[in-house]
Amino acid sequence: MVSCVYIESAVRDHPRASQLLQRLRKLPLVEIDHYGEVFNPRAQNFRLQKQNPAIIIAHKNKGQVLAAPEGYGLGGEHNYYFSHMLNCLYDCRYCFLQGMYQSAHQVLFVNYEDFGEQIRQTAARHAHKPVWFYSGYDCDSLANEPMTRFTEYFIPLVKSIDNAWMELRTKSTQVRSMLKQEPVNNIVTAFSFSDAVSHARLEHGVPSIEKRINAMSRLIDAGWPVGLRFDPVVYHRNYQSAFVDLLEQIFNRIDAQKLHSVSLGSFRLTRDHFRSISRLYPEEPLFAQNMNLDNGIISYPLDREREMIDFCETQLMNHIPAQTYHPCEWHG
């Protein structure tokens, strides 16, 4: 349940902020100068805040579009990411956002036009070459769609740029706004899935696997490109049978030939994020598993990781064409 709304004084009259305030009018409103005053202080407990997070309506002053981290993406040459929001509606225990931010409040940036301008300029710098823009790195692209109306602005924008591609990464079922628009070939909606055991234990507040498959299916039927992301794959005693069951569940409904891309990666976090999150959730089995530190990244020991990836890849290849597969490469 959202506890209150913070708003930067400077965006109080912004049309998108006004829409949001209208929607959130029953909540206490607190004016602030800059979202960092509320979002960044150290004396905050992410775990407690996540129970009743606030919404912060803000302006993103700079860095609206950033180079994607090494290894992020689908193998394209030019990869960028942008975040119209910080933090997520859902509460997935493996998510790095819990370790990256002090606060669980959700920051909504309203100056989409500045993001749009940077996307245009970035795409123009790589004229005639495909440039990927990833949304859903610091948030779920679609989960807050009824509030943010993200797709209403960004889909027509990306459609209008010849060499731009966009990935919307989501665990939500909020596809209604997309279904109202004509499908766009260079916009891929990528649905993340974990097996049923990991989903039940680790993905708090996330819609059921069945409902997400249904949302995916509706987008495919409407002609939208859709991807599958099995990242992170989490180890547990029955991960093999659970992963096989997940693939059965998905491909009973989804025609693999119609998928744009599929990617797969095992659970990993930077050392700092792992430490922060495991301090917040000391009782969480995920962080008590046997892990190794490799080049600043904490992940499963190499033999276990190899076994998991090999198994999952083999199972996936029983369903999908090889050319759609993109492994998540993160080892240096």
Binding site: S3, C4, V30, I32, Q44, Q49, A54
Partner: peptide
Amino acid sequence: QSYYPAPAVTTSLAASA
């Protein structure tokens, strides 16, 4: 200087600065 007590307790009380 501004400080923001985090609204973690669900309450029906009125809020103010």
